[in-house]
Computed example of a mutant assay.
Amino acid sequence: MQLENKVMVVTGGGNGVGRELVLTLLNKGAKVAAVDLNKNGLDETYALSGKNKKLSLHTVNISEQEAVNNLVEEVTSYHGQVDGIINCAGIIQPFIDVDEIDMDQINKVMNVNFFGTLYMTKAFLPVLKKRPEAHITNVSSMGGFFPVPGQSIYGASKAAVKLMTEALYAELNETNVGVSVIIPGGIATNIMKNSEIGGKTADMNAKGVSLLLTPNRAAKLIISCIEKNKFRMFIGKDANLMNILYKFHPKLAIKLMKKMLELQ
Rank of each mutant, 00 (worst) to 15 (best):
P126S: 09
G18F: 05
L221C: 05
I182H: 02
D238E: 10
G84T: 05
A160Q: 12
A89F: 02
M8L: 13
T189Y: 13
V75K: 10
K122V: 06
G144F: 01
G41C: 05
E100W: 00
N194R: 08
M233G: 01
H135I: 01
E171N: 11
L221N: 14
F146H: 02
M260F: 02
L25A: 08
A123G: 08
P94D: 09
I62V: 12
L125F: 08
D102F: 04
C88F: 03
L42G: 15
Q93F: 00
D43I: 13
I197Y: 04
L42D: 11
P250I: 15
L263P: 04
N243M: 05
A33G: 05
I106Q: 08
V161T: 11
C225G: 03
A239S: 14
D238I: 02
P215I: 10
I153T: 13
A170C: 03
P126G: 15
K28D: 02
K122I: 05
C225T: 09
T214M: 13
N52K: 14
K207H: 02
K247M: 11
V7R: 08
F231C: 01
A239K: 02
N176G: 13
C225P: 04
I187Q: 07
N40Y: 13
S152M: 14
I86H: 08
F248C: 15
I136S: 01
V10A: 07
K54Y: 12
I191R: 14
M142W: 00
E73D: 15
Y119G: 02
V177P: 12
K51R: 10
E73W: 00
L263V: 09
V181Q: 04
E64A: 11
N194P: 12
M1T: 13
K53M: 10
K158F: 00
D97R: 15
P250K: 14
F231R: 07
Y119N: 09
A33C: 07
Q105D: 12
N69L: 02
M142F: 02
G186L: 00
K200W: 00
E166A: 09
I197H: 06
N216S: 14
F124P: 13
E100D: 15
K122D: 01
I197M: 09
H58Y: 14
R19E: 14
L163G: 04
E100T: 06
M120F: 05
T76H: 01
I92L: 06
K158R: 11
E100L: 11
T59K: 15
V82M: 09
V181M: 02
V32I: 11
